[in-house]
Simulated assay, not measured.
Amino acid sequence: MEYQFIRDPISGFRVKMSAEHELVGRWLNDELEHAALPGLLARLKEIKATRDEFCLEGREVRLIVSHQEALFEAHDLYHEQTDALSAYSDDALALEEHGLSAGCGFEDFEALLLDWQDFIRRRR
């Protein structure tokens, strides 16, 4: 998983991710509050020990973490078609599912969060 951390003077701390992990970057930039990071890292330690899993429902992205992987799913992935949307079927429009889900291994996710925490601490 490739990423680059940036400290933008306008938008604050940001991460740029590779295209296949774009949703992970979106979650980190828009969903995870800096104050919640230590608690999340503590949960990851529990996951290692218990082999349990947990789910975090964000505003736009759901995170599901098990001892093997972290799975990110945009809520748009579960968008049900309505009558209003079916009116566009003649135009051959469809929900673009690319970028609506992403995943990574548990260790990669933990390393990303530790690097993110370190970056934020050094730049404050």
Rank of each mutant, 00 (worst) to 15 (best):
S86K: 12
I10Q: 15
L93D: 10
R62L: 06
V65T: 06
I47S: 00
L23K: 10
E110T: 01
A84P: 01
D76H: 11
F119A: 07
A111T: 11
P9V: 13
D115M: 04
R59L: 14
D30C: 10
F54M: 09
R62E: 10
D91K: 12
Q117A: 15
Q68F: 00
D90P: 07
Q117L: 01
D8C: 09
F72L: 04
I6L: 13
P9R: 05
K16W: 08
D108H: 06
A92T: 09
V61D: 04
D91T: 07
H67W: 14
A84F: 15
L100R: 15
L114H: 06
E110A: 03
F13S: 11
E22W: 01
E33L: 13
L28A: 13
G12C: 12
L40M: 05
S11E: 13
E107P: 02
S18I: 05
H98P: 00
G99K: 05
W116R: 02
M1T: 10
V65S: 03
L95Q: 08
R43L: 08
F109E: 00
E107M: 05
L37S: 05
I47E: 02
G25F: 08
Y3T: 00
M17A: 03
A19H: 11
E60R: 11
V61Q: 06
D76E: 15
A111L: 12
L100S: 08
L37R: 03
L56C: 06
P9C: 09
L93M: 14
H34A: 12
R14Q: 13
H75I: 11
E60M: 09
K48V: 11
A87R: 15
E73C: 08
A42K: 06
I64M: 02
L44Q: 01
R59W: 05
E107W: 06
T50Q: 09
S18D: 15
L56Y: 07
G103E: 00
D115K: 08
V61R: 05
